[in-house]
Design a protein around this nucleic acid. Structure first.
Lengths: 191, 191
DNA sequence: TAGCCTAGAGAACGCGCGTTCTCGCACGGC
DNA sequence: GCCGTGCGAGAACGCGCGTTCTCTAGGCTA
């Protein structure tokens, strides 16, 4: 097995273990075993757990945003509909088995304080999500796309938190967020 | 020192240590030392760390909601203004030194999976916050106070996440949330 | 075949945790 | 005065972690 293979297996194993259980609950040896990689290789690729965690989050960021982008592009063309499609996708995500909230917010709560590499990846993810919403908002007829993007960002972030934390039976969080987003779109529209 | 005293000192110490640093980063002995209480007393009051953490979160929940309620009652009488005052208070909270996001969301990310006592307190806190918003929304002239409360809850939750995670310089998250809340209020109003 | 580099398996190390146990001591009832 | 009970102080224990080290085996070159 070469380095590239081992790397992919490690990242896949990290995803399978870290997201459902949290980071500090999963030891390096468990990741190693799940990936079928020797500890030597692991530390050759990632000199510390923090590096591995940052890489896991980085990979998750790419995948998460790609999935969102794909859904939006496939299901809407009108700028307003595209912004609302973000919330439809959130609803699909929330309904997936094993959903446990935003991995980045969770990681921040768990090790945000001391882990600069991880903090940087978390912040970058949120900035990139915000920029994606801003891209969509710029296509929408509103005088202040930044404000609109920020407002929708807050709704989306709130939906992720609420979907993760609220006990069952919970109101359909994504649908509520979509309704609010629709109202904000109408309020921000110049047409 | 009697049990009541020791309990108060422990809860105060837990608050000072757990919120800024996270839960798993603070050991029982450190809480004991900060509180000036013997380990024996600690385990007499809380038979495990999970019990102590749950009690810390419970106390924080009470204090957090009381502070919010006090601010809202002191600064607004009109129902719409009261709902908006929630976001003003969030802005004050975010600006406090040491702000590190919602302690309950952080605790969920850190140990949500396996810690039923903690999970229950987290969920209860969010439910009570939602009920408070619902109380305020019921005084507002809208056909669906539940929907309005849920929408504002999402904005508030999103603001907490964004204020915690987004890197500096960050947009004034609470003000953005307030603006969005204002738009949602207008959209929900029957008058 | 002999030597050598590499890699895997996993033992070992040092540490910090949650929890329990031990010890010595002060204080209250007879 | 004396015994027992409860207390604080902190040592001890068992465990699991992140990280490093050791041993062994195999395949490559000459």
């Amino acid at each position: 097995m070469d380095l590239i293979d081992a790397n992919q297996r490690l990242l896949a194993a990290a995803e399978r273990l870290y997201y459902p259980r949290g980071i500090h609950a999963v030891g390096m040896d468990e990741v190693r075993a799940e990936a079928g990689v020797s500890l030597k290789r692991l530390y050759q690729l990632y000199p510390s757990k923090e590096h591995l965690v940052a890489a896991y989050l980085d990979a998750r960021d790419e995948r998460w945003r790609a999935r969102l982008r794909t859904h939006v592009e496939r299901h809407a063309v009108d700028p307003g509909e595209r912004l609302l499609a973000v919330f439809d996708w959130l609803g699909l995500w929330f309904a997936e088995p094993g959903f446990r909230g935003c991995a980045f917010v969770n990681a921040f709560g768990e090790i945000g304080g001391d882990a600069p590499l991880v903090l940087a990846v978390v912040q970058r993810h949120k900035v990139l999500f915000r920029e994606y919403l801003l891209d969509l908002a710029r296509a929408y007829p509103t005088p202040d796309p930044e404000a609109l993007a920020d407002e929708l960002l807050l709704l989306a972030e709130g939906a992720m938190s609420a979907a993760a934390v609220l006990p069952e039976p919970r109101p359909d969080v994504a649908a509520r967020a979509r309704r609010a987003a629709s109202a904000l779109l109408a309020a921000a529209s110049v047409g």
